[in-house]
Amino acid sequence: MTVVKDREVVESPPVRSQTEIPAGAAAAPRRLRRRWWAPLLALLPVFAFLGIFQYWPAISGIWFSFWNWKPSGQSEFLGFDNYVRMFGDEVWWSSFRNLGIIFVFGVVMWVFPLIAAEMLIALRGARSAFAYRTLLIIPMAFPGVVTALVWQFFYDPNNGVINEVLKAVGLGDLAHNWTGDPNWALISLLFVGFPFIAGLPFLIMYSALQNIPKELFEAAALDGATGIRRILQIDLPLMASQFRILFFLAVVGTLQYGFTAYILTGGGPDNATVVPILRVLTVAFQTQNWGYAAALSTTLFAITLFISVLVVFVGRSRPAKSVAVEEKH
């Protein structure tokens, strides 16, 4: 084919038919199809370890919850007797009351990392913002056992920091056995980690505020929306998806709560700080009733799974609904 351009005959390259495909290009998909099994083969060790160390213990726990399980002896099948017994376990259900108090208190205390994130985002100096952000994030790397032991020292009735400070300022009458009094033990657990700034909630909130365009802040300032008014009308609505993530993590984390209570109080005194996980451990290791402990842990797993699915479903349904409304308009 020739093309006349500026009175010169130019030979254009031949147009290749769509059916003319190089042999190498046609062979490439074939090689890919032949190797579809390679990723699956690479994932087999992962699924094997998950099955051995994750799925099998969960499945075996569900199975043994129907038995009077004796690991070193002959087990007796009980059917649903363990679950029927669970409904009359007052300590088990009171542990959920304590868990509810811990969850509500933890969510309310999100106000502290929110204030810290708002103050940090207001800093103009990049170096100072980086320095303060680093100082607030570093404590996340500390092991939880370190935090629990530090607060155990704070609450010590004899030489604890809190009682010593009260005595030093002339308020020795307020010195107390904070974790040994049933009326104060749960409250003492709630304040472990005060002021609750350093942690994942702060990191998520700060990242969300960083993603808000500065033009919105400038426009809000021109309209007179500053301070708390801007936070309520602009920041919090734009952080809705991040708060849903935090709520989901708070639900799952609270249902698994028990490490701090185990170190500081062991669930006491008089079951004042008992939580579901501690109740399971007590039934399993102190009373040696492994089948009933399996029933309790299975119930806790079912509750965690149900609430997790519910939170994820609600989090997905809302954006879809809002998109549909926008398309309708």
Rank of each mutant, 00 (worst) to 15 (best):
R35V: 08
V312L: 14
V323D: 13
F80D: 06
R124N: 11
W69I: 00
S297L: 03
V325D: 12
G266R: 05
L190S: 02
Y206E: 01
E90V: 06
V169K: 05
V274N: 00
E327I: 14
V252I: 10
T298Q: 03
F194L: 12
I212P: 00
F248K: 04
L149W: 11
I197A: 02
R229V: 08
W93V: 05
I307L: 15
G61I: 04
L44W: 14
F285S: 05
A294K: 00
T304E: 05
W92R: 01
T134S: 13
V161E: 08
M239D: 00
L238I: 04
Y155H: 01
K70C: 03
L135Y: 08
L281K: 07
V275L: 09
A208V: 06
V15E: 12
S17T: 05
P319L: 08
F77Y: 09
P195S: 05
A250D: 04
Q152T: 06
Q210N: 13
S12G: 11
S95V: 06
G193N: 03
F103W: 09
T147I: 11
E218S: 14
L203R: 04
P319F: 07
P182G: 10
D181M: 12
P113V: 01
A324P: 06
I137Q: 02
A27K: 11
V46F: 12
P29A: 08
L78Q: 02
L166R: 00
A26D: 13
F49M: 13
G268E: 06
R229D: 06
A220C: 10
S207D: 09
T2H: 10
V323A: 15
V161G: 05
V4D: 09
V3R: 15
A27C: 09
S60H: 09
F313C: 09
S60E: 07
A23K: 10
V84D: 06
E8V: 13
V46Q: 05
N158H: 07
A168V: 09
I162K: 00
A126G: 11
Q256Y: 14
R318N: 14
L41Y: 09
K321R: 15
A28M: 15
N271P: 04
N158K: 12
V314S: 07
P182D: 13
L209C: 04
F80Y: 10
P319H: 09
K214V: 12
G106S: 14
F49K: 04
W36T: 14
T134L: 10
N159A: 15
V274W: 01
A225V: 08
W184M: 11
G79E: 04
Y262K: 07
R16D: 01
V15A: 12
S75W: 00
T226E: 11
L189N: 00
W151Q: 01
F259I: 07
W151T: 01
P29S: 08
A225T: 05
Q74S: 09
L296E: 05
F80K: 05
R30W: 11
I212S: 02
W63G: 04
F259Y: 14
T19A: 07
V104G: 06
G227Q: 02
N271G: 06
D173Q: 13
A302K: 02
A240L: 09
V3Q: 15
W290R: 01
